[in-house]
Amino acid sequence: MIALDIAINDKQYDNSSSVVLKDIKFTVKPGEFVAIIGPSGSGKTTLLNMLSGLEEATTQKILCNAQPIEDCKELQLGYIFQQPRLMPWLTVQENIQLVLPTIQQTKISHLLAQVGLKGKENYYPKQLSGGMQKRVAIARAFAVNPELILLDEPFNSLDAPTAAKLRLLLVELCKSCNSTVILVTHDLSEAIYLADRIIFMSDSPSSIVHQVNVELPKPRKESGCNELAWQTKLLQQHPDILSGILKTTE
């Protein structure tokens, strides 16, 4: 299982002088599910992109099991983006096959059955609904047996019942893979439902303003009494936490 040690001093884009991320330091334990919450434009996606190697900061140190993440060539990574990002010219099956080094028909069929897309193997993405496309993206991420899964607001464009179903699916798949998970979201109830720990980020230039362990037993319920009570208590203590401001009332 993968443990992460993240230290990003500052990140700014080449074409802009403004700093996106500043002094981001946190660790992720093996198999831990961490949710990151922050206001829009706080650089949450940038952070995930840096963990996945798509972007780099001027000064960063990301360690994966005590090794620089750039050197972890064998690290199996699953990334579920905001948009499904499927290849429109490939069928559902081919889209999953794309990320696998060898042809693994049985594995793909099994995964598709798990995500409820049995019989849709030969459909093209545009023939599927948004929720179904997201399921394919989830199946693609789990096809590589990921040790680390990055989720970037994966359910934000879906209707509530579909999002709830997919969250349940995600919990099952994560459990079966023993993966370390980092979820970026702006939905506090989603974070409480899924995560072991929640990290709150401030507005840009972002830094971590608060971290809290979700001390609720699993499996949790979406909008369950305990979960709602926990959320209410947190928001009472820090009323502006979702805007990235740590104001304490007690």
């Binding site: 996945s52 190697g53 990574l77 990334y79 990002r85 290849m87 990320v99």
Partner: peptide, 19 residues
């Protein structure tokens, strides 16, 4: 965005180019 998918899933250069 699609090229990022290829990068994240560590696709080979030939696979990235042709697929």
């Amino acid at each position: 965005d699609l090229l990022d998918v290829a990068k994240v899933y560590k696709l080979s250069i030939t696979k990235t180019f042709f697929k």
